[in-house]
Every structure is written in C-alpha cells, then in structure tokens.
Simulated scan of single mutants.
Amino acid sequence: MKTLIRTLAAALALAAGFGGNAMAADDYPTKPIRMVVPFPPGGSIDMVARLLGQKLSDELRQPVIVDNRPGASGNIGMDLVAKSPKDGYTLVMAPFSLATNAHLFQKLPFDPLKDLAPIIRVADQPNVLIVNTNKVAAKTLPELVTYLKANPGKLSFGTSGIGNPQDLSARIFMSATGTDMVNVAYKGGAPALADLVGGHVDLMFETSPTAVPYVKSGKLKALAVTSDKRLPSLPDVPTVAEAGIPNFKAVYWMGLLAPGGTPPAIVQKLNAASQKVLSAPDVQKQLTEISLYPAGGSAAEFGAFIRSESEFYAKLIKDLNIPQQ
C-alpha cells in the first residue's frame, strides 16, 4: 500500500510538473526579458539585438532589455546564458562563433550544442575589407595583395577575437593569397574599428553593418566584400572573387538562443514572435539597409544549421592551422 501511495504521489507530481510548464508557457512572458549580447555596444550584433529586442517588446508585451557582456570571443556572455534559469527570461544573441569556439578553445565552460537551446537564426552578414588610407596606399585588392607579398608581416589587421568573422575572413584571405599579416585582437568590433580609424591597425575584414557607414563617410576605404554578390549599399565595391581571388566567400550569421532545457513551448513562442518580427517589411528593410540578409526558420532548422556549421568550421580551423587558446 505504501508503495502504491508513493507511486501515485510521484505520478501526480509529474503531471503537475507538466501542467505547470504548460501553464508557464501559456502565461509567458510575465516580466522583462534580458537579451545578452556577448560583445560591446556598437557592433553589428548589438545593432541587430537592439532592433529585434525593441520589436519583440511590442510583440510579447514585455520589455526586452539588451545586456552587453563582452569577452573571450563571446564565451563570457554565452556561458552566462547557458547557466541561467531555463525559463525563457534570459536569452543570448549569439554570433557564429557559437559553432567555432569549441574547436578554438581547449576547454569551454559550457557545451555550445547542448547547453543552449536554438530559437531562431536572425540574420546573415558578409564582411567588408576596409583599410586606413593613411596607412595603406593600395587602392584595389590586387594592389594590396602585391604589397603584402612584398612585405610579409608589415601590415596588421584588427579583429574582435580569434575565430570571429574578422579573424577567420583574414585567415582565409591570407591562405588564399599566400600572404601574412599581424593579428591584433580586441574585445569587439567597435574598439577595433576605432583603432583602425586612429591608425593603430591597418585594415579589417569588418562586418558589413558597422563597416559601411565608415566607408560612406570617407573615414575608411573599402576594397572588397566577402559575399558572392555586391552589397546594395556599396554597389561600386567588388566582391573578393571579382577582385581576383576565385571562389572566395565568407558570410557569417547570428541567432537567438535560450538556456538548454528551456521548455519547448516557450522556445516555440519565442520563435513564432521572432519570425513575425523578422517577416515584417519594415524590419526586413532596416536589416537590408545595414547590409544584412534577414534569415528566420524554425528552432529545429536553426539547431541543425548550428551542428552543420560546427562540422564545417572544425575542418576549416584544422586546415588553417589555427592554434587552440
């Protein structure tokens, strides 16, 4: 009889737990949501997080507050979210380094494929090769390659950390051209850009949303874009492939995730709200205007995409002999 009572009690508790989760998902959200950005303010991922956060606030009828937690190629912010309560109130706008860091760091404090729950792929972005014209005399990409081959190790490039888009694009470029440059890593794209404008580094493969305004203002010069087609915002700037390096393409992504184990109903609610926001013509226009390609899709599709990206970059990082940190 005691065994039967314990069994019935356990069953009732389990049922109550499922009901509680369902009820929580139905009521969600009932308080502000924190969206962690694992880079400093001012970069492209921060720009997109603030746009999406503002629109999600309207859609979910709760404030979505952006919280910048930079450092360690995004690992500090992503780890914070991975260890947060699994209730949908702490999210992360993660960069594509979510798929690369496991192959770049000897040990991570979290498992990128298990400890974070994919919600939606938000946008894709190419990089723009930009130079400080006071430090770099080359006016075209072929001229830059010629100079680099004659002066190995003389020019420096800024990045937001090893394995991030700026870093990988530069490494792929050096491998494709047989050139060598000095890598200067920063905590984010914004401080790297500031030093590029100031002449402390010579060039960058910077993300398109933050690079384009500097090019249009005349502060920096664009030599090429890393996508397979020209950017509408920079129609006169060739792709790297057009400029003489065939089959070169480097397009990166960012996406929204929750702590692993977040109830599927909450993930689905966030996915549906985000999909609605990303499908809105005004949001698509704003993303396109800052040289991003709106993405979208289901949580399952985003999860499968992250796994495939992880496999792809594991091979690329090995082929490029990028040392682990």
Rank of each mutant, 00 (worst) to 15 (best):
L193S: 11
H103W: 10
D236I: 03
P238G: 11
M93G: 04
A15K: 02
P29D: 06
M93D: 03
L52P: 06
I266P: 01
E311P: 04
S233Q: 15
G198D: 12
P112R: 11
S156L: 05
F312Y: 15
R61N: 13
G198V: 02
G198M: 06
F157T: 10
T90N: 12
S160R: 01
A224G: 03
L196W: 06
P63S: 10
S279C: 10
A192C: 06
D282E: 15
L270H: 05
M35Y: 07
A150F: 05
A99I: 09
E242M: 10
S217M: 13
P109G: 03
A150V: 07
F96I: 13
Q62C: 01
T7H: 04
Y313V: 10
N75K: 01
P95V: 06
T288S: 15
P294V: 05
M204K: 07
N101T: 13
I172W: 11
A295H: 05
P294Y: 00
K249G: 02
T90D: 08
K276H: 12
S298F: 04
K83Y: 01
A10L: 14
L14W: 05
A24Y: 10
G42S: 08
L270W: 03
S274N: 12
S208T: 14
P209F: 08
G297R: 07
A258E: 00
F110W: 13
N321V: 09
P41R: 09
G20T: 05
A49N: 01
K216C: 03
A117M: 12
F312V: 03
S310K: 10
A150S: 13
V212S: 06
G158W: 01
E309C: 05
A150C: 05
P40I: 12
G199Q: 10
A185G: 02
G19T: 04
F305V: 05
G53L: 05
N68T: 12
L196M: 07
A304I: 05
V37L: 04
G163V: 11
S175L: 08
T146N: 13
A123S: 13
T140Q: 09
Q268H: 11
S308F: 02
N75S: 09
A185N: 14
A295N: 01
K318Q: 15
P165S: 15
I65N: 03
T177L: 13
L320G: 11
A241F: 03
L14G: 14
I130P: 02
L56R: 00
A299H: 04
Y28C: 07
K269N: 02
L4G: 02
P85S: 03
I76F: 03
L144R: 08
S169V: 00
A10H: 00
D202E: 09
S156I: 09
A9P: 01
N271A: 12
V201S: 02
P126Y: 06
N101H: 08
P38R: 06
